[in-house]
Amino acid sequence: MNITLRVWRQPDSDAPGKMHTYQVADVSEDMSFLEMLDVLNEQLTIDGEDPIAFDSDCREGICGMCGLVINGLAHGPGKNVTTCQLHMRSFADGDVIDVEPWRAEPFTVIKDLVVDRSSFDRIIQAGGYITAPTGTAPEANSIPVNKADADAAFDAATCIGCGACVAACPNGSASLFMAAKVAHLGLLPQGQPERHSRVLDMVDQHDAEGFGGCTQIGECTAACPKGIQIDLISRMDRDVLSAIAHRK
């Protein structure tokens, strides 16, 4: 099939950008979306043009490196997929496809479709961990964990930190990302000692990075490639209230 692409091109973070149109011919429906961009880039390179910069690494939906806004939707159409798992069979011959980078103030565009997501690392630094220095651990089975809690913690922990929640959120909030980590660690007995300080510190960092607030619209959870549920945000809100109530 033949596709028309409108792609956001921006040489670097200081330069202005704009949408640029490209034609891609003979696209196979078995191609992934990124492989289709690879094909375009091969052509651009041969023609001596600057290939389109975009992030991707594992290309199997787990590293969280890729992320494009396709036709206005983070990770494009389709439920529970990352951009790298999106295949061209989701599109039809003659389609015009818009491709843009994640947009949010804390996610500076570095070049074309590549953005800076280091703010996510700083949110984790603020408290998204359990303090367990190497060597201090007790025997693993000395801490039984209720299976339902363990499963729920796992569901939350599947977040890949791709940033689709922010890209999709009309408020530019990273609440879902943060809530997933708060829930993962807060559901486990090992995470209890730091539960209150963790959530307050992470929320403060989230705000300091310049992310917006949550208005419970649910676009984040609809865009999330791992199906992280919005009730985790409510859970985080409860944790914040409980932390404030128990402040010493």
């Binding site: 961990y129 359990i130 367990a132 651990a137 995470g191």
Partner: peptide, 12 residues
């Protein structure tokens, strides 16, 4: 042991 202490959600 180390991973469980860090909160790795192994199957149970």
């Amino acid at each position: 042991d180390q991973c469980v202490a860090q909160g790795v959600p192994f199957a149970r």
